[in-house]
Design a binder for these strands. Sequence first.
DNA 1: CTAGTGATAAGACTTAGTCCCATCACTATA
DNA 2: TATAGTGATGGGACTAAGTCTTATCACTAG
Lengths: 204, 204
Amino acid sequence: MGLGAITYYACMARWEPNARERLERAALALFTERGFDATTVTEIADRAGLTKSTFFRHFADKREVLFGGQDMLAGLFSDAIAAAPPSASIADCLTAALDAVAVAFTPDRHDLAPQRRAVVAANSELEERELLKRARLAGVIAGALRARGTDETTASLAAQVGVLAFSTAYKRWAEPGNEQQYAEIAHAALRDLRASTASIGTVT
Amino acid sequence: MGLGAITYYACMARWEPNARERLERAALALFTERGFDATTVTEIADRAGLTKSTFFRHFADKREVLFGGQDMLAGLFSDAIAAAPPSASIADCLTAALDAVAVAFTPDRHDLAPQRRAVVAANSELEERELLKRARLAGVIAGALRARGTDETTASLAAQVGVLAFSTAYKRWAEPGNEQQYAEIAHAALRDLRASTASIGTVT
DNA sequence: CTAGTGATAAGACTTAGTCCCATCACTATA
DNA sequence: TATAGTGATGGGACTAAGTCTTATCACTAG
């Protein structure tokens, strides 16, 4: 039942490492097979060779098992904006932030991404969680921009634009047939959005 | 226990009208008193003179009792954009949509708004639901704009701007000390956002 | 007076999530 | 080697959300 070949003890999976990752993989597999609602936390834990108690020690709730990486992204976004030189424009900051999270989009993660997206899209509770993560991300970005002296309204709007560019890019990158690099896709998404701002801001 | 003076039968509240509204009021009162988590659905139903079964026939889940009106807003936004003349700009459409929902912001609702906002802000599960409603609203707005021929990217961005203007305006309108009309606040919010687009779109 | 309809009550049932405590593997120190 | 301590896990009791089914009630049409 374990992932590797190292199993030293009679109680197989209990003390093997990477309990958290095993739970994540087990959950994604079961959600894909049977759907989110038809899968029990106990079943997830069973497949990972663990128990319900352990599941809830690693994840606050059943949904959270699919959103482990999201919090790291916020940190990357925030740091990238904070590290931008004072001369950088808002668009430069957003570009830097989008580039900073490219490390999370390695080819090996690319296999699981479409699967994860399909599961989330199929369940409104999971969509809710994804939206919460995005909103928190927007909040972090807006905060980082305000720290640079950007005014409240512009920071909020720019944060929305950044998140919109990010989620669009992620969606396209995760599409099964996609071959393009994430950074390339993200730049294009931001460029398109910046072009669109003219259609909204211009007084006609 | 009932809201009005009309109580014809021995079983007091069971067949009195407005069960849904009674549940909403009872829930808001209890959430304010004890907090969302510390309030049971059974307690809400009890205070409304009903049962748990009836609560779940009116609301899909415990959170939804606070978000009854949100779905109507989406319809108002959508209709207003669809009804705008072909010559209207995107900004005109957003303005018309923001005006269309003014009917929901009557002075009598103004009393409950701060209370509701405080409850939602105090609980991340409720924030999640609010974000879902906003995202659905953005989706509806973007769809209405695409139906007018607006391209995908611009429609998404404009929808975000519209929702941002709306939620900012609602927040300010619902503040305890506020005296301004909703329409006035909403126009100002949209104007500020449009001005900010220049800071993001402009190539520096 | 009767049959039908829609809203409600009542209660059994499953599962998410919390809490407490025992247990196990491992480590540091005497 | 022995022992105490630490952190992760197992196990089970418990609360409450949410589902489902059946019976009851008020009301209406004929």
